[in-house]
């Protein structure tokens, strides 16, 4: 019964918080409206999410977010230095293939988004069976190292989150 009423508790929570943040004012009326939206939207859209993954460890999500945030700051400075101080001819841009162990579509989407948001790497496409991801790297001397970093830093954490 509770699963039919609240098919997607995290989505409900997110929708409610986003609504309150949008109106930027916490009043009783807004909370009621946020609760209504948080309950109604997941209920209506539930058929479109047939195999949604369960998120097992909420704290792992927070940890992942902080790690990515930190990496974004560090990588920003690295890429800025590359753009400013490196001659164009010295740039070694290359494609990197990363074999994936993640299987759920949601987890792969998060990984691809993370790779793109951390400057210096952009995810371009997946293989047809979603078994590996093609990443473009702005400058690297050691492509294997980049691949291993992405696997150990992001994919390992995502595997724990999307069990």
């Amino acid at each position: 019964m509770i699963r039919r009423l609240i098919p997607h508790p995290l989505l409900s929570l997110t929708l409610g918080i986003v609504w309150l943040a949008l109106v930027n004012k916490v009043t009783v009326g807004n909370v009621v409206l946020a609760t209504f939206l948080g309950l109604a939207v997941p209920m209506i859209t539930a058929p479109y999410w047939p195999d949604r993954p369960r998120i097992q460890k909420p704290f792992a999500v927070v940890e992942y977010f902080l790690v990515v945030l930190w990496d974004i700051v560090v990588a920003n400075i690295e890429v800025a230095a590359i753009i400013l101080f490196r001659r164009k001819a010295d740039l070694k841009s290359q494609w990197i293939v990363i074999p994936l162990e993640l299987t759920s579509a949601e987890a792969i989407t998060v990984l691809a988004g993370t790779i793109t948001m951390t400057p210096g790497t952009v995810s371009a496409t997946l293989s047809a069976d979603a078994g590996s991801i093609l990443v473009h790297c702005l400058h690297t001397e050691t492509p294997d190292e980049v691949r291993d970093t992405i696997k150990s830093r992001y994919e390992r954490r995502l595997k724990e989150i999307f069990v």
């Binding site: 494609w95 990197i96 293939v97 074999p99 496409t125 997946l126 293989s127 047809a128 069976d129 979603a130 078994g131 590996s132 093609l134």
Partner: peptide, 22 residues
Amino acid sequence: LPETGRDYGWALYDDPPLLNET
């Protein structure tokens, strides 16, 4: 582009495997 390292090519050029094939 480099090889995918899988049985299938990149999604840009190859169709995804049929569900009952995998």
